[in-house]
Design a binder for these strands. Structure first.
Lengths: 214, 214
DNA sequence: CCGCTATAAAATGTATACATTTTTAACAGA
DNA sequence: TCTGTTAAAAATGTATACATTTTATAGCGG
């Protein structure tokens, strides 16, 4: 596993305090490598929204921003149904079957950890989206998803949205099987909108609490 | 001006042949710097779509891809009207006046060169978009615009879309002045759609010609 | 003549050392 | 005590040197 993945995993687990600056030397020593690969990883993570960079003043872990989350979900709300509608004509029985397998795999006992659930959840979506054969649109959607991950990990810790999400996913598959593309896209849009609302709401509460603590 | 800007400018001017791989050493020698800043610039340009990277196999200038252009315009078509609708309530007379100034500045005699026109055109749009106060959404739209630049330079060389574009821009301002937000967003959507269609059409022709040449 | 392997060449990835910029802290003066 | 200046410390940016991986080439066998 390369340094980029390691750093991202640590960021995802909230190992670095939001707002605190990351120093290349410390990271290099911590991970036992030179500063060059650290710089590469930081640049990439910065471009993906995991870090904010103020030019030559180093990089820092961005604080959770309700407005950012709102924008991310707003964009996903507009782009993902579009991508699904483009994919719909190519969604044959085999692809839908695989998607269902993933959903089934998520309902094991004991329940899987948040990280694995997140991965499977995204695999479910990408399995459908890839069928559209639109790499550029797909890449942008994937980038938005990556940026959302930072908040989603947070959400999984605080809320239990799994059951609702699962139910909607099964509904989505059923609609796609029946060829009800428009309804499926509409459901997806509302699904993302609802998830976004819950997340943003929660972020605002949390942020208010932080402010009170000052 | 840093290396990133230099390289991007040269890419924009079509100085490197599409499909040809770029070697760090050659670039380093060419620009009179070490390979380290070259690597940084390449990574950034790769993340912005100016270059494609196949892992450790180096980077190359991507060929013009009609499907990529289509996706980019499709996304802009969905996101930019959204951003404009969010900005509309904050668009006071001063902001609209500045936008108009930019449009007027574009109609000088003799006509400006394509690069300057492109810059002014984007300034016009960002002036409106920024008013929304949605940095994240804005950043993504800006990124899409940056990716389109690669194709737009091409378009400016081949077609003269200036007059049509200008007319639609003035119409847009008029609608915004009258508070007809919904109509303005609709016009913007159709404006982007039309521009995308023309570009994609032209790319497909051009690509067909290339294939014939083989 | 074609295809496979092994070796050499070249390109990228990484570490160390140095230069430049930014930040921090001390300090003098008001 | 506060403020502005300045010098030292620390962080980032860059160059050089080395290691690893990839690609091209020469040679061998079919």
């Amino acid at each position: 596993m390369d340094l980029y993945s390691q750093l991202k995993a640590d960021l995802q687990r909230g190992r670095f305090a939001p707002g605190s600056p990351l120093k290349q030397s410390e990271l290099a020593e911590h991970y036992g490598v030179s500063r060059i690969p650290v710089r590469d990883a930081l640049a990439r993570l910065k471009s993906e929204g995991w870090l904010t960079g103020h030019g030559k003043r180093g990089v820092a872990v961005p604080r959770f921003d309700p407005l950012e989350a709102e924008d991310l979900y707003l964009m996903r709300m507009h782009l993902e149904p579009l991508l699904l509608s483009l994919a719909a004509p190519s969604l044959n029985g085999e692809l839908l079957g695989r998607a269902q397998d993933i959903l089934d795999a998520m309902e094991t006992t004991p329940p899987l950890d948040a990280a694995t659930l997140g991965q499977l959840n995204w695999q479910f979506h990408t399995g459908l989206y890839r069928a559209a054969g639109r790499p550029t649109l797909f890449k942008t959607v994937e980038q938005l998803q990556r940026q959302c991950e930072r908040y989603i990990g947070y959400q999984n810790r605080s809320l239990d949205y799994q059951s609702t999400s699962q139910r909607e996913h099964y509904q989505l598959l059923a609609l796609l099987r029946q060829g009800e593309t428009r309804e499926a896209c509409s459901l997806l849009e509302q699904h993302i909108a609802a998830a976004g609302r819950v997340l943003v709401e929660h972020l605002k509460e949390q942020q208010g609490a932080d402010v009170d603590m000052k």
